[in-house]
Design a protein around this nucleic acid. Structure first.
Length: 278
DNA sequence: CTTACGGCCTGTACGC
DNA sequence: TGCGTACAGGCCGTAA
């Protein structure tokens, strides 16, 4: 499920539940995620206090009081669900691979049916050079992102802009939904070669990316099938999709007869309006 | 170097 | 009902 807005929503929920808390017990039911959990995973976290929870791209970063960071990626189907005593509505119950129990009784469960997610423990001072984080592009909702930066990153790229935006080295945190939505909002064809998105176009696209992500975060992310937030609340940005998963439906703000089209680019669905996006 | 594609894994929706 | 196929929010390794 998770692209940047969903991960950010989960981060906020986890921060409320876990920041400042000590992890008393870590239970591992399966360690064969996308990559195996690191050695002694549970023992390295038990007894540690969570000093802060951050995010980089689609990675959750839980800072521990021993100057290590628990890095977690949710893959396609991963969730973090907070359980407070009585409440036991854990989604994907049979796919809970790791549980974190804080000393105050709060339990956070990581579930991930497809097991494309992963976790690692990294020294805080080596975080930026971690293999999974080192090559990531700029945070699109950070101050250091704008049309000029985006244009620079797209320069010379011969792939369609759709594929370029899915590349986490270009911009960090976008996935299929928000790429489609951003291209629609900025009126740029997903088939346009990335290197031709320069100048004014790049600024329009960067602005659209920032706006789409901000709107999605404000809506608590998108819930395509089930819960998104760590507290179990549904995000509702899926109701604001203009093109994603709307093949054949009329596109808002456009009178073209064709409506939203679906094509496949690099093996993934792209939704767009041929009249509005050039 | 850059780009394209198969594979990872499970669940679900759909057509026959 | 059952079965086969396609597809799903991500990413990586390999090949070209």
């Amino acid at each position: 499920m998770p692209e940047l807005p969903e991960v950010e929503t989960i981060r906020r929920g986890l921060a409320t539940a876990l920041e400042g808390r000590r992890i008393a017990r870590v239970t591992v039911r399966r360690s064969d995620l996308r990559r195996p959990l690191p050695e002694n995973f549970a023992a390295r976290i038990e007894g540690r206090r969570i000093t802060g929870i951050g995010r980089r791209a689609k990675y959750l970063l839980l800072s521990l009081d021993d100057d290590n960071v628990l890095l977690a990626h949710l893959g396609m189907s991963g969730r973090m669900v907070i359980e407070n005593g009585a409440e036991t509505r854990v989604a994907h119950l049979t796919h809970v691979h790791v549980s974190f129990a804080a000393e105050d009784g709060t339990v956070v469960r990581f579930s991930d049916p497809r097991r494309f997610g992963l976790m690692d423990i990294v020294a805080a001072n080596a975080l930026d050079s971690h293999a999974l984080l080192a090559g990531l592009g700029p945070e699109p909702i950070g101050n250091a992102f704008d049309g000029t930066i985006l244009a620079e990153r797209l320069k010379g790229k011969r792939t369609p802009i759709k594929a370029a935006l899915l590349d986490q080295r270009v911009v960090a945190g976008l996935g299929n939904i928000y790429v489609c939505e951003s291209l629609y909002r900025s009126g740029i064809s997903p088939k346009r070669l990335a290197r031709t998105v320069q100048g004014e176009r790049a600024h329009r696209l960067a602005d659209a990316i920032r706006a789409v992500l901000a709107d999605a975060i404000a809506a608590g992310g998108s819930s395509l099938r089930d819960h998104v937030s760590a507290t179990g609340e549904l995000g509702y940005f899926q109701h604001n999709f203009e093109v994603y998963d709307r093949e054949g439906q009329p596109c808002p703000g456009c009178d073209c007869g064709a409506g939203v089209l679906r094509i496949v680019q690099s093996g993934r669905s792209t939704f767009y309006c041929a009249a509005r996006q050039r």
